[in-house]
Amino acid sequence: MGLDFSVIPPFYGTLALGVLWTIAITAASAVLSFFGGILLAVVALYGPLLVRLPFRFVAWLFMGTPLLLQLFLIYFGLAQIGVDLPAFVAGVIGLGFHYAVYNSELIQTAMVAVDKGQMEAARTLGLSRRQALMRVVVPQAVRDVLPPIGNNMIALLKDSALVSVIGVSELTLSAQLAIGRTYRPFEFYAAAAVLYYVINLGMEAVLRGFEKRNRLSR
């Protein structure tokens, strides 16, 4: 069986929809992982001990196990305790939380490295500890780790392919759908690979743009 790329055009619509869903799930998960990462970092550093310890444990668990396994846990685990989520939502939670843990590690390191004088200056102006954290310390820490957070988001795009296994009809599953009809795996996986590659390039360009804009404020 040779290669025949003329099987692809009839499935342009399917693949295009897959691309949109991939972008949607990546964007939603990236947003969740960004703000989740900030929240986790603040709690891990400043939360009460009773909250901090379980958080550290869960972070350790999520950094030491495969994302795919976590997706199964979230999808089937939540269903078991009676929370029946659409696959898309489960996928966003799984991807978002997984990368939130990684982002949180980056942000924590950066928060600790923010000069102590920054907190002091904010407090002497009359800001509360929380205000000082959210207005002064966190923005600086996040700004300092923007490039590695960007790298995490690019990794997230590629890991979004994993949510196909819990039935989110993103690009990978769209390709599988087309393969189910045509029995042409090589052509469609190759097509999916090209599309991922293009999205990847686009995302890198956007992130580099962000970083450039951020350069002055340091």
């Binding site: 200056a121 102006l125 509360s128 600086q140 404020s217």
Partner: peptide, 21 residues
């Protein structure tokens, strides 16, 4: 926090917020 609003402080190392104009 209310008291500190009435007491301005200037530091040796300025401690300006670098992420703000």
């Amino acid at each position: 926090n209310e008291m500190r609003q009435q007491i301005g402080m200037v530091f040796q190392h300025f401690n300006l917020f670098p992420h703000l104009t």
